[in-house]
Write a protein that binds this DNA or RNA. Structure first.
Lengths: 149, 149
DNA sequence: TTCTTTTTGAGAATGAATCTCAAATGAGAC
DNA sequence: GTCTCATTTGAGATTCATTCTCAAAAAGAA
């Protein structure tokens, strides 16, 4: 799975005259191998945990390259940190987030997509991208009492 | 217009055992008197411009009180800054944002609201709030060439 | 291998937001 | 009105994610 994607990444690097470094490859691998929505710090820590020698700066820089070239998706749920997820099969989707435990579920709605397009048309905007996040309480969190520490 | 709202604010302060200070009133007035989507810094500067003696800290603190009590709405368009707007008539709405000039248009779609609810139900989440932002190019920006500085 | 350019890492810098704490100020009691 | 005391304010320090800096290391074309 990563092999095909790694080729895409290598193509991007070549096209942009960027060098193929072990650090960049490891960051890409780390992102592709997880289905989580992680912050740069989490990706950095995961890399250190598996003994990849890399600095925070390089993780941040690489995530930016990946994002700029549509190899990862990123989201901001309002806490001032970017969360990244791989974008292997380019499934456009939006997010449903539990405000208590942080669990993130992905959803797609062609109907919403269509209405969004209509809204943009109505106001004479050319739609480029969108952010759609639903915040709520998941089943488990509705059941369990709030823990007070 | 602000009179009725000011009463609401005073009620909140009283209910929360918070004091009615000139600074708090001025911040609330400043927010109510504009239809812009401004950052705390912008609100602070506007207050200073009309010779209100206030500190940044107090502006931030007051915006937080207003937000926590649903007297203002706030949004984050991904640049790490909260933008505030008054919430006088509590019109629930979402935003369409021009990625070049920053113009923000408000829109409402009962259809989308309904689908959102269905999505939350499907995943067994109790919907609490949502963020829905459409990013695109407005009419003017599509026409005018990009200025390079 | 050599050479040139890019990349890396460590730590400094940035910037929005929050925190600290002494001095100032509300507002209830008298 | 004024006393009293908890709350609020302001100035500057702090936080924290992210970006920047720059010397040393590495990529990769020749």
């Amino acid at each position: 799975m990563i092999d095909i994607e790694l080729k895409k990444f290598k193509r991007v690097l070549k096209d942009e005259n960027l060098k193929l470094t072990p650090q960049r490859v490891e960051v890409f691998r780390e992102v592709c191998d997880s289905d989580e929505h992680r912050e740069a710090e989490g990706i950095y820590l995961a890399l250190r945990k598996r003994d990849v020698n890399i600095s925070r700066a390089t993780v941040y820089r690489t995530m930016d390259i990946l994002y700029q070239h549509d190899l990862v998706q990123r989201m901001d749920i309002g806490d001032g940190k970017w969360r990244y997820e791989h974008w292997l099969d380019c499934h456009q989707h939006d997010h449903l987030i539990c405000i208590r435990c942080g669990t993130i579920v992905e959803f797609i709605s062609p109907q919403i997509e269509e209405i969004q397009q209509n809204v943009a048309d109505k106001f004479n905007y050319k739609l480029v991208r969108h952010v759609h996040q639903l915040f709520g309480l998941c089943k488990q969190c509705r059941k369990s009492p709030v823990s007070v520490n």
